[in-house]
Simulated assay, not measured.
Amino acid sequence: MVKPVPFVLLRAVAMALVTISLLGGLLGGLIRAGTMSPVAAPWQWSAAGWHAALMMPAFFGAVIGIERAVAVRVRWAYLTPLASVLGGLCLLTGHANWASGCFAVAAGVFVAVNALIVRRQSAPHTWMLLGSAIVLCLANIAFGLTGLSEAVLAAWFAFLVLTIAAERLEMSRLMRRHPAANPLLGAVLLALSLSLVGLWANAGWASRLFGLALVVLAVWLGVFDVARRTIHTQGLSRYMAVCLLLGYAWLAVAGVCWWAQAAGGGYRDAALHALGLGFVMSMVMGHAPVILPAVARIKVHYDARFYLPLAVLHASLMVRLFGGHASPQLKAWGAGLNVASLVLFVLTMVTAAISWRRRHTRHS
């Protein structure tokens, strides 16, 4: 069945805007890390200044919004990714006020989408997803009122962490857990929530509590997630488990660095990027071969090539975060390799999709 031209065109425009947000965020990160210098173009300075906003509420807000819209199958849910990418475009063109409005609309719709999911299926993981949506909504509203503060930044990260934790809780729901598992997770979520409230109130203890919550959550995921078992399998399941367990290790590192930064240790870059790259991007690499076919209806052929971008990502993080703490040059080189790993992963997904098509065309 041929889809109507307006829908195909709208999807193409949306994907182009998602790509622009991602490329803008990556370019901004390279400029901030000293890997490259901006030229006179104002949008490049905007990319550097709004790096975090381009990556989280713009890019990830759109990507997760698309995934959730596909799941609920209601047209109005696509307002979340549309408003998210428009917000990113506004940031790049120097219209921060319009961007904050777009982000607020995107997050408001996103809360409604997740409330609909809870109504259809009331379960611990769906309530966690609703909670993460509320955190995103409050963060985006605060961004419009106060700008890019440390509290807003932590809340954006909390949105991503809670979303990932909820999805892993869903995947592991059939496992038998220790009776203390759920109460411990509840305590972690409470601590994370209290830390966000404290950060908005400029409380001195809040950053330490945020870091501690990340460390405990990393331990919880490492102990109770199904990846602990699937690491002993083969193929795609083992690859996903490797991505997940490496991500949990970086989540713990991020929590320790967040605590150290709060104590005046100068670990801000390590805290932010151990979380944003080591944890979040490792989760993306692990889930993409499964989520992309479900969302975009593009099937991929899995093989060992997927380990190459994963290895580059984690090796470059080691260079950036541990070597870069003492050497700005190593930090710049590490950041460049971080971006290279993401580009390599995109190419891997493209070639894996081509491989699948060729194999099935040959056998049809």
Rank of each mutant, 00 (worst) to 15 (best):
E150W: 07
V18S: 10
R228Y: 06
A166C: 02
T35I: 09
A123D: 08
R305V: 15
W250P: 04
A181Q: 04
A304D: 13
G264S: 09
W250R: 04
W45A: 13
G108D: 02
E170G: 01
V312T: 04
V63K: 03
F345C: 05
I164F: 08
S37L: 15
G276D: 00
I354N: 08
A62C: 00
W156Y: 15
R208F: 09
I291N: 05
Q44F: 11
H51K: 07
M36E: 11
G88L: 04
L30R: 00
A263W: 11
G87C: 07
S172W: 08
L130T: 05
V113Q: 02
L317W: 06
C137A: 15
A47S: 08
A154M: 07
V343I: 14
G88S: 06
Q234W: 14
Q261W: 13
S355W: 07
R320M: 07
L92V: 03
A294N: 11
A133H: 01
V216M: 01
P57W: 05
N114M: 10
M281S: 10
C257W: 12
S193P: 04
L310M: 03
G278M: 08
V226F: 09
T230A: 02
T233Q: 10
L10E: 15
R297A: 15
Y302K: 07
S132K: 05
L275V: 03
G286K: 09
G108N: 01
P4R: 06
P289L: 08
A40E: 14
P124C: 02
F103R: 07
V118T: 06
A326H: 07
F103K: 10
P38A: 15
C137P: 03
A77Q: 01
V161P: 04
S21T: 06
A218G: 09
V109H: 01
A304Y: 07
I117L: 14
P81Y: 05
W333I: 15
Y302H: 11
L162H: 11
T146A: 15
A201S: 05
T348N: 06
I20A: 14
F110E: 06
L153F: 10
L23R: 07
V319Y: 10
A288V: 12
M128P: 03
R320T: 05
A52M: 10
V350W: 15
H287P: 05
H273P: 03
Y248V: 09
L192F: 01
